[in-house]
Amino acid sequence: MADGHIEKVEYWRWEESRWKNPEIPDWRGSLVTAGVDIGSTSTQAAIMTDGQLYAYASIRTGSNSPSSAVDAMNWALEGTELTPADLHYTVGTGYGRVNVPFADSTVTEITCHAKGANYIYGPTVRTLLDMGGQDCKAIHCDENGAVTSFMMNDKCAAGTGRGMEVIANLLAVHVEDIGEMSFRIDAEPPPVSSICVIFAKTEATNLMRSGWSKEKVLAAYCHAMALRVARLLERNEMQLDFAITGGIAKNSGVVKRIERLIGAEALRTDYDAQIAGALGAALMGKALHEKKGGKSGRRREGG
């Protein structure tokens, strides 16, 4: 504040990331498929070679969905041997799935998340919780990652990533620190409103004024989010194994509370659970490409 201005910190801003599979140093595969998941809050691009995850990128969805798709894909391709011309088949998914300019087809994020979770967590997953930026889905799937039933909640930002971002900004806590901070409490406080994110924000403000610590307020908020999600899982008759995808899967404050409420542990993974949708889309791309009898091989060389 030396120059008289308050430094503007975007506490909600989570770190954008990219990854390239170190076990596939050079692309030697024959079939390249990609998935682009344009969510309300984040966009992911995943590239698979011969059904193996090769690279991905995760960025914030901007105001222009098509350019977000292009940016995510270009970043995922960066540092690889591949160019967009090498992609045999690309599937768009997420709420902006029709806005992926280079997609060959679209598949809903519900189908893609189940496929992606099957890849990430293995074939034992039967209930999947996808906690996204603006909605939450409880999905049942079989050993192949095919959806057998699902239930969605998208009536309000409460219980979603966007709601968490609002609280991060309100309490001036970096969104990635919320989970760990929410456990620095003596006893679990009662939850704030889980019906409406605006009510929750108002409640959180009042609790701060009444002397609650940030940690306690965060615990109350994570508790509320977990309660809302647990109800969705109960309504959809949860079956084990259980796994979580989406950005909130990275928030231990919510995940551990969900586990406590439902009495079951979610499967863990070294993958970034936020890319499940894009990864599933790339897998769907492989299946769709093969179904239509599409050719493989290096497209640039083979024409």
């Binding site: 709420y95 809903t108 994020e109 519900i110 189908t111 959806v147 057998t148 039933s149 699902f150």
Partner: peptide, 14 residues
């Protein structure tokens, strides 16, 4: 409409 569309499409995919 968007909420209906995604549910309907996912159900159809299923």
């Amino acid at each position: 409409i968007g909420q209906l569309a995604v549910r309907a499409e996912a159900f159809i995919e299923m």
